[in-house]
């Protein structure tokens, strides 16, 4: 199986605080790798590093065999290959749903506006949001906003998706509509990297789960192994606390 993303020995520190240390993993094509771990374990920073929103302090990141952590890598070109979705949606409040989705295709991909609109409407229709095309984001529910944010990243035809705790800002009823969209994308063969607190969802969608603890990958494996029979005390402790919080 060919690898889309390879991360080798990545390190990231903010000043003297080391946030990521010795991070290595691979994401094969059409698979989903899920990062779990408590808040502050470095999940979000890892995703931001991969998308070059943060500069890494050591290590190598390659996408389709090309080193994107190289100094001479074209940052804007690299970012177009990732579809990044944030915890807080980060839709553009001054633009309609349709404009949010077509902005990057028109300006970053340079396709004709008519085609961008047609593609966007097709995506909206596919995910049941066609009637929201002309609305502004603040008129939508949290779940709808996050689905629009996912569609916005899909409109760039990304090589893979980076989903950063995309349901953490949603109330439980709305979580499902977002997760079922991600499940659909997974079964369509989209390669993805997720950070999540939703263990049930991780079990369904993940091909591999990595447990991140204080900036290191402590344990990794198939979801049924890692989530049901973890080996390390830290992993057990984390899963027990999540379980107690009523999420498992």
């Amino acid at each position: 199986m060919s690898e889309v993303l390879v991360v080798e020995k990545v390190r990231k520190a903010f000043g003297s605080e080391v946030v990521l240390e010795d991070i290595s993993f691979r994401v094969p094509v059409h698979t989903a790798t899920v990062f779990i771990g408590s808040s502050g374990s470095g999940k979000s920073t890892l995703l931001r590093c991969i998308n070059l929103l943060e500069q890494i302090d050591d290590g190598i990141i390659t996408l389709d065999g090309q080193e994107i952590s190289a100094v001479e890598a074209n940052v804007d070109e690299v970012r177009k290959k990732f579809g990044m979705v944030f915890q807080a949606f980060n839709l553009f409040p001054h633009k309609t749903v349709l404009e949010n989705i077509t902005l990057a295709p028109i300006h970053a991909r340079g396709i004709e506006p008519e085609q961008a609109i047609a593609e966007a409407l097709e995506l909206l229709a596919r995910f049941g949001l066609k009637d929201k095309a002309e609305q502004y984001p603040d008129r939508l529910s949290g779940g709808q906003q996050q689905r629009v944010a996912i569609i916005r990243s899909l409109a760039l035809h990304p090589r893979m998706l980076l989903l950063d705790e995309i349901t953490s800002a949603l109330d439980p009823v709305l979580v499902n509509e977002v997760l079922s969209l991600v499940r659909d994308l997974k079964s369509d063969g989209m390669t993805m990297l997720l950070a999540t607190h939703e263990m049930g969802f991780a079990k369904q969608v993940a091909d591999e789960v990595c447990f991140l603890h204080k900036g290191r990958i402590l344990e990794w494996g198939a979801p049924e192994d890692l989530l049901e029979s973890p080996k390390l005390p830290e992993t057990k402790d984390f899963l027990r606390r999540v379980h107690e919080a009523g999420r498992l």
């Binding site: 804007d76 300006h107 760039l156």
Partner: peptide, 13 residues
Amino acid sequence: PSQRAAARSLGLT
């Protein structure tokens, strides 16, 4: 800043 992050992550210059 998250607005800038979102725009840059979409590949906008």
